[in-house]
Nucleic acid binder design. Structure first.
Lengths: 178, 178
DNA sequence: GCTAGCATGTAAACGGTTACATGATTAG
DNA sequence: CTAATCATGTAACCGTTTACATGCTAGC
């Protein structure tokens, strides 16, 4: 889990309703766990940090299976922070696909349609900027121009990915703006 | 730059020839810098670690522009470590696209064709395993089944990406095996 | 005289990984 | 009775981010 992602995931999931740490762990695991499992050593300290900064509240409850549960609820400040992170994502959240997907997972929680559209517009603008992994004197090289077969693959895949995503972004923006 | 990536990038670039830290920084920046710029505070300590573990050697040289340069060269142990990382990548390097691209960037340096093919085969096997970001009782959901428009986008994009990559992997494997 | 680029470094704060630790309940 | 699942936590280690620090040369 890339830095910062975990906090957004916790806030985003709690934005859908209160739950305890163990359930957060299971939900995060389903969302992105095949890539990078959440460890207890990351999750529980992250919850403690959120509690200390007043974004999350704890209420002890009897465990369904066994032990006592710490049911977590977003405070008003926590919800405000979640919406702020969704409305004004960092550049890195826009440029890195994994992180952008983290945003998309919870974007429906942004109440204003115009705010949701603006996030998609930023991603589209990023994808429309010419870029490559390889350059010749600052000119981005296209797949056809690189001799290394694996480099060519990277560019072919990146192009297909970018095209698919741009198509979806344009369609979805058209719907949001209608 | 996700953890571990930086070390591979340094080893991989030095595998193409000796260079000093500042040039490494510029080359890494072109490869992935639009996503996550390399900071000096990550790069120079990483070089020091590689030197201490005997994977890299330093030779001082006069700087072309100004200051003295520390030209870095891979040792035999360093080249062995680079090849080991390319030949036997961690699961995370196979499952995360960003990390897999890090592998592809340097994969041509693997001398044995069979080893290069094996890395592609592992990635293909991962992509052929059914997976989703969303589940209903452990069954991965398809784009058509999820109501949230942003979740649907994630699945549509992931499918297009996966299809393009699988096509390229199969073609390239066929060439490598002929 | 100043700014941009070349070139290398250190230190504090932060967060993640891995391993360790505990304890209760349920199903085989 | 014992393994799996539920449930939460701590501590050492490691690497990254951010900020700070230095100093030289070339062009305006």
């Amino acid at each position: 889990m890339a830095s910062g992602d975990l906090t957004l995931s916790i806030l985003g999931l709690l934005g859908e309703g209160p739950m305890h740490g163990y359930e957060l762990k299971a939900r995060i695991h389903r969302l992105s766990g095949h890539l990078r499992p959440v460890s207890d050593g990351a999750l529980y300290p992250a919850i403690t940090r959120l509690e200390k900064s007043g974004l999350v509240e704890r209420h002890e409850e009897e465990g369904a299976g066994a032990a006592r549960r710490q049911v977590l609820t977003l405070t008003d400040a926590g919800r405000a922070e979640l919406l702020r992170r969704l409305r004004e994502p960092a550049d890195l959240d826009i440029s890195d696909q994994t992180r952008f997907f983290g945003l998309l997972t919870f974007l429906s929680q942004l109440p204003r349609r115009a705010d949701r559209a603006e996030v998609l517009r930023r991603r589209l603008a990023f994808l429309e900027t010419p870029a490559s992994f390889f350059y010749e004197e600052d000119r981005p090289l296209r797949a056809e121009e690189v001799p290394d077969p694996f480099h060519r693959g990277m560019l072919l895949i990146a192009r297909a990915t970018g095209d698919a995503e741009k198509r979806w972004l344009r369609e979805t923006l058209a719907e949001l703006e209608s």
